[in-house]
């Protein structure tokens, strides 16, 4: 059996990225402000992590408008969901294997 620690996805090393993925996996889509208050991070910090996830095709970004204000909503992709689920499986294995 391979070491479960090696199965952990490096991209999900950051708490903020894990937070983003957790919120997106249970919702159809979430907008920037809701993500911000949920994870409790600054605009810039959140934007950087969202960018990384987008570059890895783990999340989809849709820019829209509510009136004149921009409203950017994020949703998870199939690739993202698969990657996040196997990351969760690996976490589970680590805990089960050692406790």
């Amino acid at each position: 059996m391979s070491n479960p620690i090696e199965q952990l996805n490096k991209i999900f090393d950051s708490r903020i990225r894990i937070g983003i993925m957790s919120a997106l996996i249970v919702n159809d889509n979430v907008n920037f402000n809701d993500l911000k208050s949920l994870i409790d991070v600054t605009d810039g910090n959140l934007a950087t992590h969202l960018k990384t996830l987008e570059e890895n095709a783990f999340i989809k970004v849709e820019k829209g408008f509510i009136g004149r204000k921009t409203n950017t909503v994020y949703s998870i992709t199939i690739t993202g969901e698969k990657a996040f689920r196997s990351h969760l499986d690996a976490l589970e294995k680590i805990i089960k294997g050692l406790s």
Partner: peptide, 13 residues
């Protein structure tokens, strides 16, 4: 990490 994930899943949905 798992506790974090669970808390955010719950609070967001």
């Amino acid at each position: 990490a798992l506790q974090d994930i669970r808390s955010i899943m719950d609070r967001s949905a």
